[in-house]
Amino acid sequence: MNLTIIRRLIQITAFIVMVYGIGLGGYYLADKLTSSLPALACAYDMQTADHCALISFQHQMAHHAAPVLSSGGSIIQAFLPTAITLGTFALLLIVLSKAFCGWICPLGFFQEVLNIIGQKLGLQQTQTLSKNITSKTRPVKWLIMIFLLFIFPLLAGFGVVGHELGDPFCRICPSRILTTLVTGDTKELVVDTSSMSYLILSVLATFLFGLMISIGLMVRQPFCRICPMLSLNTLFKKIGLVRLVKEAKPRCVKCGLCAKSCPMDIHEIHTDMENKDVIYPDCTLCGRCVEFCPDKDVLKIKYAFFPILSSDPGYFKKRKKAQTQWEKITLFGGHKK
């Protein structure tokens, strides 16, 4: 038993709850729980147990904040619902921090499964993306957050841009297509011909979904790299009780196994020699860096002050062996790396 196996079991359970929640808690579960989940469980999935905060923010901008402001309401009135959603979102992040991504998110899990499939099919894997590529993709999630979650929905609410841009992130979100498809509902895998803007948005969404699938077979977590949830939860990372702590040793300089194991290609987890708190914006708190660090107690996952897992040479050896054996199993005996 290692951390990754435990994480997989939790991810499978979370996937079932988030995608097929009805069976467990009844039809209205999603409306009862938080509606502010820091993971892409989707409101368009009829059976979901709870849904992501992103749709709430977009709707609050377009259907509440903008109309209230344009009818002369105060800023407080306009943004009160958003503040409440943000508060719930923050409370959830206190409990699990960015681990919602690495442990709960159905879309995050789906991308991990894709990568396993790609590896088993023997497709050539790109284990680490170059710094050049990651530095280009990193800002995208911030832009998506600012424009697609807040600015366009607000402008749509004021009538400055078309109502099609009232929930622009949902329009292109891969989780909407994935989570409905796996419940046997094809109504989101469509091209919407009702207007030019909907046509463009729906073509973009389905195209992105296909792109994510094929790239996901060869690169780890392709969509996560531009997901606005990562930027949003980064704003609250200081309050989370789950922490990733590093106590760098001189040997770190030559090692770098942590960064290699990181599905999000966070090079800094290796190169950072000063900070103790090493939750970077792209981190999903999957814990792989801790598992693959061969040095004693250099990397740790803590819950508040209690250590959950500390890097350890013994654990590393076993984990490495397990990984090598796992990677040897391929359907057609294709590429290893």
Binding site: V191, S202, F207, L211, S214
Partner: peptide, 14 residues
């Protein structure tokens, strides 16, 4: 249309 656009996305990824 959706499946077509998804397939184009998939091929582009490859």
């Amino acid at each position: 249309g959706g499946i077509l656009s998804l397939s184009i996305g998939f091929l582009s990824g490859i």
